[in-house]
Simulated assay, not measured.
Amino acid sequence: MAGAAKQAKDNRPRPMTHPDPMRMSHLSPSVRSPNHGSLTTQTFVRCCLVAVLFIAAVTARPPQAGAGGLPLPRFASLKKSPVNLRVGPGVQYGIKWVYVRPKIPLEIYEEFGNWRRVRDWQGATGWILGSLLSGRRTAVIAPWSTNNIGLRQKPSSTSPVTAWLEPHVVVGLVNCDGHWCRVAVNPTSGFVRQKRLWGIYPNETF
């Protein structure tokens, strides 16, 4: 009986972080200022404010078309790293932050020539060269939360949890139906409630 109990305990889903040592389960340490100092802002408060402003902005204004015909605002992700976030649309402008992890989702809300003005999951804004951004969709797991989020086998709250995802983990978005998203996180995939993700709009489908 003791052996059976131990085996059952060992089979329970564990909190999941990125297994690749080149990736970090938390985004905060992956963003550095030009002098490589870590972010020292009150992340939780900022994320709560960003979540409120994010929902208000989405519901208050209709999508607009950018210079390339794509809608504004929209989400994109970083193709590679490091990438400089600048105070203006050009290399002559100073650097606000340096993103040192690829695939981080960013919201594009303004365009100027080949430059894109973006907002990140903490509300930081600035300009990035458009060629450094990808249309591949990614998301951040509940950056406003301190609780792990369940990765489920099926898009249902009663479906078994196969893994626990820590807040700030970056996942790939496979598809979303407005309520649930199928996400990919190495080495597995599953479903997460859409409202638990930063990187996709409420009720957005694709």
Rank of each mutant, 00 (worst) to 15 (best):
T162K: 12
L85E: 03
K154C: 02
V31K: 00
C181K: 05
F112P: 00
Q153K: 12
V169N: 07
R32E: 04
P160T: 01
V169A: 10
R12Y: 02
A57D: 15
V31C: 00
K9Y: 01
N147D: 08
A67C: 06
R117F: 10
V192Y: 04
A60R: 15
V185F: 09
Q153I: 12
P202E: 12
R74I: 08
L197P: 01
S28I: 08
V98Q: 01
G94H: 05
G135D: 12
V45W: 03
C48S: 05
L165Y: 05
S159C: 06
T40S: 08
A60H: 14
T40I: 04
L151S: 04
H168S: 03
K103L: 10
G94P: 00
Y201W: 14
D120G: 07
G68M: 09
P62Q: 15
C48E: 08
T162C: 10
H36P: 00
P82K: 03
R46N: 11
G199R: 14
P82H: 04
N175P: 00
N147P: 00
S81A: 15
S156R: 00
R152H: 09
K6Q: 07
E107K: 15
F75E: 13
P89C: 11
N11R: 03
H26Y: 05
P34T: 00
W115S: 05
L132M: 14
F44L: 08
G94M: 05
N186K: 12
V192L: 07
V169I: 06
V98S: 04
T41D: 08
P160N: 02
W121T: 06
R101T: 13
H36G: 01
G88L: 10
T43F: 01
Q7S: 01
L106G: 12
A67I: 11
N148T: 09
E166G: 00
V100S: 13
P82M: 02
D120H: 13
P155N: 14
P21H: 07
D20F: 08
Q42C: 03
G190K: 09
N175L: 03
S156M: 05
V100Y: 13
I141Q: 10
V45S: 07
V192G: 03
V91F: 05
G126W: 08
Y201N: 10
G135P: 07
V185D: 06
L27D: 00
I55P: 03
V183T: 05
T162V: 15
K96C: 06
R119E: 13
G178D: 11
V185S: 10
P15L: 05
G90D: 09
G150L: 12
K6M: 06
A142Y: 02
A139C: 15
S156P: 02
P160G: 01
N147Y: 02
P71F: 06
G88S: 10
V161R: 07
N186V: 14
W198Y: 14
L151N: 08
R136M: 13
M1K: 00
T146V: 10
G3F: 11
L133V: 14
M22D: 12
P71Y: 11
W198Q: 07
M24I: 01
V52G: 04
W144G: 07
V140H: 08
R32C: 04
L133M: 14
T138D: 06
G172A: 11
G37R: 10
Y109K: 14
W144N: 08
R14L: 02
V171P: 03
F44C: 01
H26I: 02
